[in-house]
Amino acid sequence: MEIIVCIKRVPQTAEVAVKIDSTGKGIEKDRLTFDTNESDTYALEEAVLMKEKFGGNITVISLGDEDTEDTLRIALAKGADNAIRIKAEDFGVLDGFQTSQILQSAIKTLNYDVIFTGCISTDAAYSQIGVTLAELLEIPHASLVVNFDINNERADVQRELEGGLIEHLDISLPALFTIQTGINEPRYASLIKIRRATKKIIKVIGKDELQQDEFISNSTLDELFVPPISKQVEFLTGSVGESSAKLAGIFKEKGLI
């Protein structure tokens, strides 16, 4: 089975302060760490599990700058066979639709039965790359996948809906699936495997090798701003002892304890 996994290197912003840079359209990156986008790690793990079950090859592909090669090497260390970087530096600022078109132009010449992507990136947060890519490749898709298997050359898929409800589907291959977090337990790459992966060759593709001149954008980012406050929070300040005492006092006053 031929599997393609699309991954993205993203700033890890969940637990740190994020500041807008001087252009007003980007963020200050010097104090942030970068790693594989969270749901993409689950997409890669699902590919490795499928390869272990059915055999085959995994190709990881990422549109990114040179640092992205570190992210691709981790994927190689975890079980991917081939890695492709599309040079982001050949393009200017891209929207999600352009990203999908660029991925399509690189993937359309490859052989594949299954394509996995993460269901959302934590930076741009569109949840659109995978489903758009499927449409451009003219293959079926399912998003937010929380259970995946293959039976009789068709995919047996469960999607996560709201409120814990699951949608069970049967989809023909080749097809694209966007993977939700929690579907599996992403493995860690061992040091030996990481060391071995540093010797593997990552194929680097430039814009001129994509056989497509124009990538239409759907939208332009005009400016970033700090979200307006919807509800005025009362911060309880002071030492830990003081803030905790204030909060306990509020609980008492409201009859909650």
């Binding site: 700033p11 994020v18 939208s219 332009t220 980012l221 005009d222």
Partner: peptide, 19 residues
Amino acid sequence: IKVVRQMFDGKLDAKVILR
């Protein structure tokens, strides 16, 4: 059409103009 949407784990809002 101009829209507002969130980025970076919901920490920033973005004003986006559609083609």
